[in-house]
Nucleic acid binder design. Structure first.
Length: 340
DNA sequence: CACTCGTGGAA
DNA sequence: TTTCCAAGAGT
C-alpha cells in the first residue's frame, strides 16, 4: 500500500503538526533528528491505553534511573515492577524487561517494523510507531486516535471492531512515504486535542475541509461503537498483618503470581478474589474497612481485615517505607485505609 | 473475534 | 456520583 505521492491529507496534517506539535518529554521537535529508540520505545509502551499526563512522571523516573536499554536490561525484574506500580497493565512491565534483555543481547533495537514486532510487548501499533518515529520507516500507525480521526475523515459507518479493516486501509492510503513518524504523531495529536471523542473542535481542525463526517454534519457519531456490557461486582478480602520490631512497625506482604490480575506485583494476602485460585486464605479478623476499586471488566469491593499471623510466602515490610514496596493502587488504597 | 488486563482524569 | 475512555497486547 505505498502511495508515492504525499496525499492532500498528509500535506495539511504535516503543515499543522509543524506549528502545533505537542511538547512531550520523549519527542524530538519537528525537523530535528529522531530521539533515541530506547526513549521512543519506552514511551510508547507506557502510553499503551494510558494518558500522557499519567505517563510523564513515570517516563522521567525510568529514564533517570535506567538511561539506556542496557541499563534497563541489567535491572532486576522486581525493581522494574515496583517502579511501574500505579501505572497499570503490569504485563507491560514484565514484557519491558524481557524486550530490554533481548535488545541488549542482540546489540540494539531492530530497525524495521517486522523486527520490532517480534519483541515482547510490541504489537501492531507499537512496532509501527517505533519504526516510523525512531527509524524513519514508512509504517501504518493506527491507535485509537488515528482510528477516530480516520473514521470521521471518511465517515466510515460500519461499527467497530469490524470497521478496523477499512480504517487501516484508509490510513495506509493517506500515509506519506516521507515523515511517516511525524504524520502518525500529528494524527495522534489531532485526535488528542482537536478531533476528540466528545465535542470535537472542528473549527480548529486542519482537515475540516476534507472531513466527510463534518460535511455530513455529525462528526461525533463516528466511529460507531458497539454497546458495552455491564461490569460485574466482585467481593474479596485482604489481610493487614502487622508486627512490632525494634526497627518499627512491619506489615506482611506477598508477591502475586506472575500472570493474571496484578501479576508479579507485591500485595496484601487475600482470599482469591481475582478468581484464579491463587488466594491464600485465612480467618476473617477485625474489619478495618472497605476498598472499592474499578478494574477494566469488573468492580471490586475489598474487605480489609486485621490478621494475627503471616499468611503464605511473603516478607515483612517496614510500614514507614511502604511507598517503596511498589504496591498497585488497589493495595495502596487498602494500606491507606488500614493506617488511618 | 472475544476476553483479560489498571488507572486516573474529564465531563 | 457515575460514566467514559486513553499512543493496545496477549491469548
Amino acid at each position: 500500500m505505498t502511495s508515492s505521492a504525499t496525499t492532500v491529507f498528509a500535506a495539511h496534517l504535516l503543515a499543522w503538526y509543524d506549528r502545533h506539535a505537542r511538547d512531550l518529554p520523549w519527542r524530538a521537535p519537528p525537523g530535528e533528528p529522531p530521539t533515541d529508540p530506547y526513549r521512543v520505545w519506552l514511551s510508547e509502551v507506557m502510553l499503551q491505553q494510558t494518558t500522557v499526563a499519567a505517563v510523564k512522571p513515570y517516563f522521567r523516573a525510568f529514564t533517570e534511573r535506567w538511561p539506556s536499554v542496557e541499563a534497563l536490561a541489567a535491572a532486576p525484574e522486581e525493581e522494574v515492577m515496583a517502579a511501574w506500580a500505579g501505572l497499570g497493565y503490569y504485563s507491560r512491565a514484565r514484557n519491558l524487561v524481557k524486550a530490554a534483555r533481548a535488545v541488549a543481547e542482540r546489540g540494539g533495537f531492530p530497525d524495521t517494523e517486522t523486527g520490532l514486532r517480534e519483541l515482547p510487548g510490541l504489537g501492531a501499533y507499537t512496532a509501527a510507531a517505533v519504526a516510523a518515529i525512531a527509524f524513519g520507516r514508512r509504517a501504518v500507525v493506527v491507535d485509537a486516535n488515528v482510528e477516530r480521526v480516520v473514521a470521521r475523515l471518511f465517515a466510515i459507518s460500519e461499527p467497530l471492531p469490524a470497521a478496523r479493516k477499512a480504517i487501516r486501509t484508509k490510513t495506509a492510503a493517506i500515509t506519506p512515504d516521507d515523515r511517516a513518524g511525524d504524520f502518525a504523531q500529528g494524527l495522534m495529536d489531532l485526535g488528542a486535542t482537536i478531533c476528540t471523542s466528545r465535542d470535537p473542535k472542528c473549527l480548529l481542525c486542519p482537515l475540516a475541509g476534507d472531513c466527510a463526517a463534518r460535511i455530513a454534519g455529525d462528526p461525533a457519531r463516528f466511529p460507531i461503537k458497539p454497546p458495552k456490557k455491564v461490569k460485574p461486582l466482585r467481593k474479596g478480602m485482604a489481610w493487614w498483618i502487622e508486627r512490632e520490631t525494634p526497627e518499627g512497625a512491619m506489615v506482611w506482604l506477598v508477591r502475586r503470581p506472575g500472570k493474571g490480575m496484578l501479576g508479579g506485583m507485591r500485595a496484601l494476602p487475600d482470599d482469591g478474589w481475582s478468581a484464579r485460585g491463587d488466594g491464600i486464605g485465612g480467618e476473617p479478623g477485625e474489619p478495618l474497612g472497605l476498598v472499592r476499586h474499578g478494574f477494566t471488566h469488573f468492580d471490586l469491593e475489598l474487605s480489609v481485615v486485621r490478621g494475627a499471623a503471616p499468611l503464605g510466602e511473603g516478607e515483612w515490610w517496614r510500614i514507614d517505607r511502604l511507598d517503596e514496596a511498589g504496591l498497585p493502587t488497589l493495595y495502596a488504597k487498602a494500606a491507606r485505609l488500614a493506617l488511618d
